[in-house]
Design a protein around this nucleic acid. Sequence first.
DNA 1: CGTACTAGTCTTTTT
DNA 2: GACTAGTACG
Length: 767
Amino acid sequence: MGILDGLNDKQYEAAAHVDGPQLIIAGAGSGKTRVLTHRIAYLIDACDVNPYNIMAITFTNKAAGEMRERVDRMGCFGAESVWVMTFHSTCVRILRRYIDRIGYDTNFTIYDSDDSKSLMKAVFKKLKIDPKFLKEASVLREIGRAKDELLGPTEYEEKYMADFSKRQYVECYKEYQTQLRNNNALDFDDLIRMTVYLFKDCPDVLDSYQERFKYIMVDEYQDTNTAQFELVRLLASKYRNLCVVGDDDQSIYKFRGANIMNILNFEKVYTDAKVVKLEQNYRSTPAILNAANAVIQNNKGRKDKALWTDREEEELVKIKKFPTGLDEAREVVAEMCKRNSKGIAPFGDNAILYRTNAQSRVFEEQLVREGVPYKLVGGVNFYARKEVKDLLAYLKAIDNAKHDLQVKRIINVPKRGIGDTTVQKVQDFADDNRMDFYEALTLAEQIPGLNKAAAKLVNFTEMISHFRETLREKGIAATFKELLADTAYEEEIIQADEENSEDRLQNINELFSKVVAFEEENPEGTLSEFLEETALVSDLDSLDENVSAVTLMTIHSAKGLEFPSVYLVGMEDGVFPSYMTINSESEEDLEEERRLAYVAITRAQDRLQISYATSRMIRGETQYNPKSRFLREIPAKYCEGETGAGDDYTAAKTSTYLGTATRSKAMDELHANPYALKPGFVPKKRQGLYGNKSVSQSKPVTFQTGAALAVGEKPAYEEGDRVRHIKFGEGTVFSIVKGPRDYQVTVDFDQAGRKIMYAAFAKLQKI
DNA sequence: CGTACTAGTCTTTTT
DNA sequence: GACTAGTACG
């Protein structure tokens, strides 16, 4: 039978195992997705399993999407009815149907971390807790941890009854959960937890899902937390056809509750489990693989394994040392430019990986300066940006007036003279009369003490109900358009005229495109369904591999991805491993960090460069850190360039930089002033304690930015013209349309694709 | 009620 | 250094 042809022996063994529990230990790059998809095909075609009875669970939407695509491509009959989803979306799906069985309304809302934080603030206020004494974030972290461990407020209280120091956490947790329930809302962690409760409380519901999911597969099993483990255990307990895939060496989410014991103890929980190890790596060169193995071998609690490859040796791992973080960024970008122009590697082959998001900035600045296209993953999630959240809040308020938090968010955005005191009066009235905030708003004229504000509130509710009418009659996109027009939201951004105005307008356009796309794809789709889609996506999900641009992201985000050429930067003790783990004295924390290093190294296919800097600006101060201990763990025989230990400043001391440090401000200047970077512009030299050889070599920028137009002024280019943009590079003007306030220009960029922008902000240059 | 300034926090990673 | 929340003042 041909379904499993082309798999190696181990892969075959794993894919052909059908009944009973199975643990697949899949090393980095060992083809685990391949095994999973082939196993699904095997179940359907060779074992006559109904595709409807197969479930594959992943952590990210991106992984789910890829799996979906590959399953569909196997071409098995009925493959589209295989359930391929993330943990979170699976739970939402189940809860929307059955959560009323445990006392919630099925049209519950999902709170993101921002919402949770606002709610916690309200909790503090109510309990009269001084935020200086206790941090909202730390309480939320504690609650999240409790929820990951399936401890509700009551269980949590019981467990820590004797612990006086947890007293306030208990109070906060109880109040927080009460308020969530009052708002008919669930936070992220509740999604999993409530599904587990539902299954435990309602055996008939559990049974129906056990009958549905007779064959269960879990990807990235090493990242499961206790709640997720329990969820899977319950679902699989009837038929016991549970196949989990993971790699204990890539467990890097302990801080989020992941319990590495779930994978290490799998064989103890399922004593009859079949265990298969995939150790052949199809991704990296021997040098890269050996380096990775050498590092991870320093960890103790791990399943014994060693990846191998039959690839030919090509290049050794490159180790580079730089005087400063700025030099590092400059040289890395220069190297990529060189390799690109020589035709060795297009920009899209490269990834820059770092420990923390904050490290991306220097690289961004250099990439912008050199006109290199790049994709930045992480930082602020698209749906978490202020303007996007504002507009989504409008849509949520239009969709369902019970979204108190959302209504309050936008009641005075843009400014319409409704202040905190007014809001508080309305809230008090609502509390006294036991009604929703929005309901109270509609009765503004009956609320005592509002005076002039009442009329403003009436205007607001009338506007919302008008939008509701539009929604019913003309659909989501039309409502969105009207929303923009009536609230003059964009005008406010244009008027404020901040340096990121253009980005913000662009985000609005992007959100609008998403609305339009949703409506086109789901002609019958409701606004609620659209909003649901936006609740569970991350920045990573939008990463487009078809665009040839350098990728910048944290190592965490890079898990599961691969790149021909990887630059692993900031390899210094105190940066990576982070300051926190070095000081924590806990060997476990350091081991988690080492696994992170392992993940980073194994992302590289053909070429890996690891670099560190003697001094580096962190949070406004210059730090001198020694080379990373992980770097020292790589034997010199796999490397070229700087190797060995102890060739640099080893006393990890911190000192504040003297003199006026001229931090590179390329980005800021580009946004603030279109003339800031003229060809030939050379940044001010940075004079530090260390001689800085490369500063004076700074190349002129490769592009010129266009002049700023006044809002509404006709641009100097026409349809069909070739133009250049600061960020997106070159493109062709598709259309120029005169909008109500300004010309809207649509450009098809060679790299970045089609963008719609306002002429006054785009600063396009005809070429 | 809105604005302008100040002080404090953040930085480990995020579905 | 950058962002945010909080405060004082008009």
